[in-house]
Nucleic acid binder design. Structure first.
Length: 266
DNA sequence: ATGACTGTCTTTGACAGA
């Protein structure tokens, strides 16, 4: 079963690319980030006609997360499910989760998340990002355990390690690669989450999911690995392979992010 | 060279993104 995550940077601009991608890859589940439309403005019909159930939470012109699934959700979570919600007013535009039931796995939770960017470093917004990540860990502690089958995928806006950026010296303490962000991301993993790509390819260099629109960054493969698929231990031996699908980043009028796909044996 | 790109709205410039 193939699942994926893709920050599309506007579903209005990228709708046809997502349709094409879904048809070509026959994805079972796709998590989408940065739809940039209100909840009710999501073009659900385009994906329903391809056989997907559609779940979306968005905001006016920004944020917005969706899950497209071949299986109907049994439960849906939007945002932090009440945990310190007053401190994180945009959480419902950044976190969506569904519980589905599969033949060999009767309870699987899947999340599509879009962590705040946090730029500029040391601004109020930067500290909001750090607190958002920390609250996400608390949200997991309250609602799940490390033994729950969980797939948390999306744009975390953090490159965890030096091999996850094209040049750690140039980018050191730049947004998405500061010590503080990397520490909080590690703390999130300490809940019991595994970075699926590093489970399969612990040392492989040059794997990125985002490239700046400027500076011919994609042609030079000057990117960062900001989009992740995190899984709990019960799913580790079910992961067959995981990779970044770079092709859509080379299409005309691309998103600045490429999809990450994972193949599971469910 | 405080640049370079892209998408959105307060739209014909400002801003956010990463």
């Amino acid at each position: 079963m193939l699942i994926g995550t893709w920050n599309v940077n506007s579903i209005k601009i990228r709708r046809e690319q997502v349709e094409k991608f879904l048809s070509e890859k026959n994805l079972y589940i796709l998590g989408i980030q940065e739809t940039k439309v209100r909840t009710e403005e999501f073009p659900g019909f385009s994906f329903k006609k391809l056989g997907y159930e559609v779940y979306h939470q968005g905001g006016k012109g920004r944020n917005g997360v969706a899950l497209l699934s071949k299986t109907k959700a049994e439960e849906i979570i939007a945002g932090f499910k009440g945990l310190k919600e007053e401190d994180f007013p945009d959480a419902k535009e950044r976190i969506i989760g569904i519980k589905i039931s599969l033949k060999n796995l009767k309870e699987l939770w899947i999340f599509s998340v879009y962590i705040p960017n946090g730029s500029p470093v040391s601004s109020d917004y930067y500290f909001y990002k750090l607190q958002f990540l920390w609250n996400f860990r608390e949200f997991l502690e309250v609602n799940f355990s490390k033994d729950t089958p969980l797939i948390i995928m999306g744009d975390f806006n953090v490159a965890p390690e030096e091999i996850d950026v094209y040049d750690p010296e140039i980018l050191r303490e730049n947004i998405c690669f500061t010590e503080r962000e990397r520490k909080v991301f590690k703390a999130l993993l300490d809940f019991g989450l595994i970075d699926a790509l590093r489970l399969k390819y612990p040392d492989k260099k040059g794997i990125f999911t985002w490239w700046d629109y400027q500076f011919f960054a994609f042609n030079k493969n000057q990117g960062m690995r900001l989009d992740h698929i995190l899984i709990t231990e019960p799913l580790a031996d079910k992961l067959k392979d995981i990779w970044v699908e770079k092709t859509p980043r080379g299409w005309k009028k691309p998103s600045d992010h490429a999809p990450v796909l994972a193949e599971f044996k469910f």
